[in-house]
Nucleic acid binder design. Structure first.
Length: 310
DNA sequence: AATACGTGGAC
DNA sequence: TGTCCACGTAT
C-alpha cells in the first residue's frame, strides 16, 4: 500500500540523516523531554540543541529545577526569548513535585492542566516520553506535511478530522520516530514557502508535489510600538538587562535603555514595561530596584483538580 | 476569538 | 541592509 511505502521511505530518510538531531543521540527521561519540548515550542531546533545541554546540566532533574529560585531559571533561559515559558516550566516542576511525587503523569487530561503544557506539549510527552502509539502529535510542520501529502492542503479538514487522519497515519510501533521525521521533513524540505519537492524522500507519492503553495494570509494588525520598536522588543531588552545585572535600580535601567538623560516619556514607557513584567511574574520591584523574582518568597501554587471544568 | 510574546533566519 | 516571518500557550 502507498501509505506503507511512505512510512518506510520517510523513516529511512530520517534514520540516515547526515547529522542526527540531538534527541536521536541518546534516550531521554520524561523530565528531559518536558524541558526539550517546552524549549521547542517557539524556538528553532538548532538553537534548542545549543541551549538544552547547558540547561539540563544546571537543572539535571525535576527536583533540581523545582528547588531552584526562579531567577536562576530565567538566567539559564537567557537568549531563548519567551521567558514566560521558563516560568511556566518552573511552576510546572514545582507542581509535579508537590502533587505527583516528582513524576510526570502519563495522562493527557492531567498534563493539560499543568502550566505551559498545551495540546502540542502534552501529545509530545505521551509520544516521546511514554511511547504511546495511539496519540497523534500535530504541530504546524506535521499539519502542513500531512495535508500536502494527502492533497488536502486546499481544503483542510476540521481539527477533529485532522486528528483522526493523523492518528491513522501513525505507522505501527514507530510513532515517536514517525513524528520526529515528519517535523524534520517539514522544517527542512516541506517548508511553508518554498518546498524543495525535488529533494523530498516521499515526493513521488505526494499529491501536492511541485505545486506552488498558496501564499499564507498576512496579518492585518500592527503591534504597539515605542520609538519605532515593538513593545515586545523593549520588553525583551529590559528582561535581558535584568538577567545580566540583577538587581538593577530603575534609574540605571532607564539609562541603559535610553541613554544618560531619559525623557519623561521614556521613563513612563519603562514603567509600563515594568508593570507588565510584574504582572507576568517575571520581575519584582522593591524601593525603586528591579530584580528577578525569587523562589522562597513565591506564593504556593495550586492547580485545579482534574474533575473541575476549565 | 483574537492577540501578545521574542529570537534568528529568510529574502 | 532592513523588513518580514515563524508558532504553541495563555488570556
Amino acid at each position: 500500500m502507498e501509505r506503507e511505502r511512505i512510512h518506510r521511505r520517510l523513516l529511512q530518510w530520517y534514520r540516515h540523516r547526515r547529522r542526527p538531531l540531538l534527541w536521536r543521540q541518546r534516550s531521554w527521561t520524561p523530565y528531559e523531554v518536558l524541558v526539550r519540548e517546552v524549549m521547542l515550542q517557539q524556538t528553532q531546533s538548532s538553537r534548542v540543541e545549543q541551549a538544552l545541554p547547558a540547561f539540563l546540566q544546571r537543572f539535571p532533574t525535576l527536583q533540581a529545577l523545582a528547588a531552584a529560585p526562579l531567577a536562576d531559571v530565567l538566567q539559564q533561559w537567557a537568549g531563548l526569548g519567551y521567558y514566560a515559558r521558563a516560568r511556566a516550566l518552573w511552576r510546572c516542576a514545582r507542581l509535579l513535585l508537590e502533587r505527583y511525587g516528582a513524576t510526570i503523569p502519563e495522562d493527557e487530561r492531567l498534563l493539560r492542566r499543568l502550566p505551559g503544557i498545551g495540546p502540542y506539549t502534552s501529545a509530545a510527552l505521551l509520544v516521546f516520553a511514554f511511547g504511546r502509539q495511539d496519540v497523534p502529535l500535530i504541530d504546524t510542520n506535521i499539519r502542513r506535511v500531512l495535508l500536502r501529502v494527502t492533497g488536502l492542503a486546499a481544503t483542510p479538514p476540521a481539527p477533529a478530522q485532522l486528528r483522526e487522519l493523523a492518528r491513522a497515519w501513525i505507522p505501527t510501533g514507530a510513532s515517536a520516530e514517525w513524528h520526529e521525521a515528519l517535523m524534520d521533513l517539514g522544517a527542512t524540505i516541506c517548508t511553508a514557502r518554498h518546498p524543495r519537492c525535488s529533494e523530498c524522500p516521499i515526493g513521488q507519492w505526494c499529491r501536492s508535489a511541485h505545486r506552488v503553495p498558496p501564499p499564507p494570509p498576512r496579518s492585518a494588525r500592527r503591534e504597539p510600538e515605542f520609538a519605532g520598536l515593538p513593545r515586545r522588543l523593549w520588553r525583551g531588552r529590559l528582561l535581558r538587562l535584568l538577567v545580566e545585572r540583577n538587581p538593577l535600580p530603575l534609574k540605571h535601567a532607564a539609562e541603559l535603555l535610553f541613554g544618560p538623560a531619559p525623557s519623561v516619556e521614556q521613563r513612563r514607557w519603562l514603567l509600563e514595561l515594568v508593570a507588565a513584567l510584574e504582572r507576568d511574574g517575571l520581575l519584582d520591584r522593591r524601593n525603586g530596584i528591579l530584580c528577578l523574582p525569587n523562589a522562597p518568597q513565591a506564593p504556593r501554587e495550586s492547580i485545579p483538580s482534574a474533575g473541575e471544568p476549565r
